Amino acid sequence: MTGLRYVYAVCRPFGAALQAQLTGVAGAPPKLLSHHGLIAVLSEVPERDFSEEPLKAHLEDLDWLTATARAHQGVIDALTAVTTPLPLRLGTVFRDDSGVRVMMEAREDVFRRTLDRLEGRVEWGVKVYVDPESAADADERPPAKAASGRDYLRQRRMRTKSHEEMWQQAETFARRLHETLSGRAEDFRLHAPQNSALSGAAGRNVLNAAYLVPRRESEEFVEVVDRTKDDNPGLRVELTGPWAAYSFTEERQGNEEGA
Rank of each mutant, 00 (worst) to 15 (best):
Thr2Phe: 02
Leu4His: 12
Leu4Thr: 13
Tyr8Ala: 09
Val10Ala: 08
Gln21Ala: 06
Gly24Glu: 00
His35Asp: 11
Pro46Glu: 15
Phe50Gly: 15
Phe50Tyr: 12
Ser51Tyr: 12
Glu53Phe: 11
Glu60Trp: 08
Leu62Arg: 13
Leu65Met: 09
His72Leu: 13
Gln73Met: 08
Ile76Cys: 13
Ile76His: 04
Thr80Arg: 15
Thr84Gly: 06
Thr92Ser: 10
Arg107Thr: 10
Leu115Trp: 02
Glu119His: 10
Arg121Phe: 08
Val122Asn: 14
Val128Glu: 13
Tyr129Pro: 00
Tyr129Gln: 07
Asp131Leu: 01
Pro132Val: 05
Glu133Gly: 09
Ser134Ala: 13
Ala136Glu: 11
Ala138Lys: 12
Pro142Glu: 06
Pro142Asp: 05
Arg154Pro: 02
Arg156Gln: 09
Arg157Pro: 02
Met158Glu: 14
Ser162Trp: 05
Glu165Ser: 00
Gln168Tyr: 02
Gln169Pro: 05
Ala170Lys: 11
Glu186Thr: 12
Asp187His: 02
Asn195Thr: 13
Asn195Pro: 10
Tyr211Cys: 12
Val213Phe: 01
Pro214Ser: 10
Glu219Val: 13
Glu220Cys: 14
Glu223Lys: 08
Glu223Gly: 15
Lys229Trp: 10
Asp231Ile: 09
Asp231Met: 15
Asn232Ala: 10
Val237Gly: 06
Leu239Glu: 11
Thr240Tyr: 11
Thr249Gly: 07
Asn255Arg: 15
Gly258Glu: 09
